[in-house]
Design a protein around this nucleic acid. Structure first.
Lengths: 197, 197
DNA sequence: GTCTATAATCAGATAGAC
DNA sequence: GTCTATCTGATTATAGAC
């Protein structure tokens, strides 16, 4: 046992603060729109500190994107592997609390040509969204097998539809400056998936 | 009648070339990622020319966004007001030929904080996507009224779902580097909307 | 580990010649 | 209408002191 006798939590190390600041800025402004200086200012770290811990902007972005992707995946898996019927779990995922007007921190990166042009930065984006579609398809296949869903629903195709409604719902909400279109799109999908008796 | 005796089409004026170059670059790289210099180079125009015709980058972007929005709207209206049943017209719009990996030139702007922060640039984005949802809702209401669609489908909600599937389908396709997820999402939606007998 | 120079390049214009 | 020169500040680092 190490002699730990702190009463208050220690301040986050500079490297962690830099990654957190980068995560926020990538979400808000994208990769192209985020400068090292802005990261340093938000993290309360100087240039020397940043370039000591990371080789540059791409290196920092990779750390940030990786952490964000892991979080998103853990959250989704928790809901999709939780209790309830297949349709209930998909609905729970669709209805999960979200910062709708900020959009999806992973899906957003898809619109950044500099991210998509770099295989290293792109990989976690591709893998996360790919994993999500597969996981949803598994749950939907379960629902079809036990009769919750009609045989006409193709699990893979419907999984793509579900993820697309979320990603597209963010776009509509941002365009409208209002979360309502996101909720409408989700409700519309749920109605189609599980029509009221 | 003016004395027009040209055999070959005249070269596009510089102002037009600048707007077209801006349209392409906004689509490919977004507003933040597009510099005046890049626009000038693609248009084959110098700085003097650009700043003679436009007051600056925002002014040029407004012209570009407006033209793109008008095009998208005319195209959508042609299909949604064309021949066929309501479901056929919505399907035609969903299946319309698209440059899937480039994404939606209007929806893309939604992710650009500089665009969304400027009411003037933002207006055409908001209006175009808003109009599209309303127009789709009209067609879907028609389909519900004549029995093509079940009474459970809410026209406005379903319209949001349809647009979201398209916008989100682009995100999935870009993430995967492949158009397949877009097609899957669209097919999945059509199956839910009009299940095979 | 963090700080302060230093610097090459780009962004986004303005001014005035032609 | 278009060109070139000029300018301020940001971007994305590197070098070396502390």
């Amino acid at each position: 046992m190490l002699p730990v006798n702190d009463t208050a939590p220690p301040p986050a190390p500079a490297a962690d603060r830099l990654v957190e600041a980068t995560r926020e800025l990538l979400w808000e402004r994208g990769y192209t729109g985020t400068s090292p200086k802005a990261i340093q200012q938000r993290a309360g770290a100087g240039q020397g500190s940043m370039y000591h811990h990371f080789t540059g902007k791409p290196d920092l972005a990779l750390a940030a994107i990786t952490r964000t992707a892991e979080e998103l995946r853990a959250l989704a898996d928790g809901l999709l592997s939780g209790p309830g019927t297949a349709v209930e779990r998909v609905t729970a995922y669709l209805r999960r609390e979200r910062d709708v007007l900020r959009g999806c921190p992973v899906g957003r990166l898809t619109q950044d040509p500099e991210v998509m042009a770099d295989p290293v930065l792109r990989a976690p984006v591709e893998q996360t969204l790919g994993w999500l579609r597969v996981r949803l398809a598994e749950v939907l296949a379960e629902g079809r097998a036990n009769g919750e869903l009609p045989p006409s629903v193709d699990p893979s195709g419907t999984a793509a539809t579900v993820v697309a409604v979320l990603q597209g719902g963010y776009v509509l909400a941002r365009a409208a400056g209002d979360t309502a279109p996101f909720d409408q799109a989700v409700t519309g999908l749920i109605t189609l998936l599980a029509p009221p008796a």
